[in-house]
Simulated scan of single mutants.
Amino acid sequence: MSLPQPVPPSWKDLGKSSNDLLGKDYHFAGTALEVKTKTPSDVTFKVGGTRDSKSSVITGDIETKFSNRKHGLTFTQAWTTANVLRTQVELENQIAKGLKLELTTLLFPDKNKSALLNAAYKQSGVHARGALDFFKGPTFTTDAVIGRDGFLVGGEAAYNVTEGKITRFAAAIGYNAPEYAVTIHGLNNLNTFSASYYHRVSSDVEAGAKAIYDSKATQGGVAIEVGTKAYLDAAAFVKAKINNSGVIALGYTQTLRPGVKASFGLALDTQKLNEVSAAGPSHKVGASFVFES
C-alpha cells in the first residue's frame, strides 16, 4: 500500500527555493521601511515605504488584515500613495476541504478597476488553481501541478472569453527532494525556457543557479545567475550572487532583536567599476528595516 502523497507546490511556487535564494534579501534599489503590528483580536496592521535610489521617488502603503481562523475568513484592505485601493477577501476550507476562494479588487485613480476571482484546490498529489479576471477580457487562467514521489509536472493556460482563444500557455517539470530541487519551465507559449537548481549543502549553507533562454531574442542567448546563502549564526546571514553580465550582488541580514530586522544590499557592475554614466553610477546600494510586534 503506497503512502499518501504530499500536496505539491502551486504553479507559481515551482522553483521557489531557487527564486527566493536568488531574488530575496538583496536590498540595493533604495531604502525601505516596514512596520507590522498585531492586535489580540487577530487584526494586523502594516505600513511600508520605499525610496527609490535612482529617482528619489517615495512610495508607500498602509494595510489592514483581519483573520477569523474559526471560519477560515481573511479580509485585507490596503491603500497606496498612488491612490490605489486594494481589497481582498479569502475563504478557506469552508465549502470543501482543500478549497480556497479569493476575491481581489483594485480601484485606480483614473477610474479604472480590476476584479479577480481566484480558486485553489489542494489534495494529496494535486494542486490546481483557477482565476477569472472580470475586466481584462474577461480572461480565465488555470494551472495545475501533479506530484508523486518528488516528481512534479505542471501546466498553465489563459483563455480570453470574449475572443474565444487561448492567449498564453506554459508547462513545467521538476523534482523536489529534502535537500535539493530541480525545475524546468517552458514559458510564454514555450518561447522562453528556464532551468533552476537549488541545493541545501548543509544546515548553514545553500546554493542555487538559474538559466533563462529566450528563443526569440536577437542577442544575448542564455542568461545565467548563480548564488549562495550562508548563515553566520542564528540571527544573521549573508547572500551573494553573480550573473553572466558581470553584476555581483551582496546582501546581509541581521536580526537586531526579536521583531527588529535590518538588511543591507550592494550591487556592483564589474564591467563598469570606474564608469559613471549621465544617469548616475552603475553600482547600487540600499537598506531595509522591518519592525514587527
Rank of each mutant, 00 (worst) to 15 (best):
D133Y: 04
D133V: 06
A170H: 03
A223M: 07
L106R: 11
F291N: 09
F140S: 04
G30W: 13
Q219P: 00
K122N: 06
Q219A: 11
T59S: 13
R69W: 07
K136Q: 15
G265Y: 06
K239Y: 11
K136M: 12
Y26D: 11
V145T: 12
A96F: 02
P138K: 03
H283L: 00
T87S: 15
D269R: 00
K136A: 14
V290N: 02
A278T: 12
L21G: 14
S17K: 12
V84N: 06
A170E: 07
G130S: 05
W79R: 04
Y213I: 02
R86E: 13
P109M: 10
P4Y: 09
S282R: 01
F108C: 01
V226D: 08
I242E: 09
E92K: 02
N274W: 01
Q271C: 01
S124M: 03
T64N: 09
K122E: 03
A144C: 11
S55D: 15
I58W: 14
D133M: 08
N112Y: 10
N191Y: 06
S277G: 15
T31N: 07
S288H: 08
Q88P: 03
L117M: 10
S10M: 03
A195P: 13
E163N: 14
T218C: 02
T255F: 03
Y175Q: 06
N243C: 02
E90L: 11
S55F: 05
G147C: 08
T104D: 05
T139H: 04
L33M: 08
N244L: 00
R200Y: 02
L14D: 09
I58H: 08
Y26L: 07
L268F: 09
K111V: 07
V35A: 10
A181D: 08
K261Q: 13
A131E: 14
F45A: 15
V260H: 11
G49I: 04
P258G: 00
V35H: 11
L266K: 02
A78L: 10
Y231E: 09
D52L: 07
R51S: 13
L187S: 13
F66N: 04
F45G: 15
N243K: 01
R51G: 10
F237N: 05
T192S: 12
E156W: 04
D204S: 15
V226N: 05
W79Q: 10
K24E: 15
T105S: 14
T218E: 15
I242T: 08
Y213V: 03
A236S: 15
I184W: 09
K261H: 06
S293T: 12
N274Q: 10
N244Y: 00
A128C: 02
A223E: 13
D20E: 14
G265T: 06
V290M: 02
R168C: 01
A279P: 06
H185T: 07
